[in-house]
């Protein structure tokens, strides 16, 4: 399946950009850009996505390296957890009023 944005006729490969806002937080996807190589992608990502101290660390990864699930099959693909509400604490009602539980 083609990666969105990675269309024929695009001169440079597509990169996805992830930024860590602060130490202790995860890198979060912030957007994408096109660049001729990894180094330029990183520099462009800094200029484009961190003009206001939005981050302390950036990842760039070629979109073509990402494997994704199929949006049209999300029902089937994510079926397993459905109907397993006993995985959530609030399933257990009898203990609801008991302190510290």
């Amino acid at each position: 399946m083609p990666t969105p944005g990675d269309v024929a006729g695009e001169g440079w490969p597509l990169y996805e950009v992830f930024v860590r806002a602060n130490r202790g937080l995860s890198h979060v996807h912030v957007g994408s850009l096109h660049a001729p190589d990894d180094d330029m992608a990183l520099r462009n990502a800094r200029d484009l996505y961190t003009r206001r101290n939005e981050g302390v660390s950036i990842w760039v990864v070629r979109s073509s390296a990402i494997t994704t699930s199929d949006p049209d099959q999300k029902g089937a693909f994510f079926e397993s957890p459905a109907g397993k509400n006993y995985r959530h604490a609030k399933y257990y009602e009898k203990s609801a009023e008991v302190p510290h539980l």
Binding site: P4, G5, V7, A8, G9, E10, G11, L14, G31, S32, L33, H34, D47, L48, R51
Partner: peptide, 22 residues
């Protein structure tokens, strides 16, 4: 510089629809 950035965010969004930057 912000305007340039805004243009790039939007070009990226348009590119997800299948049109190239060029």
């Amino acid at each position: 510089q912000d305007e340039a950035g805004h243009g790039l965010y939007l070009y990226s969004a348009a590119q997800t629809l299948g049109i190239s930057r060029d």
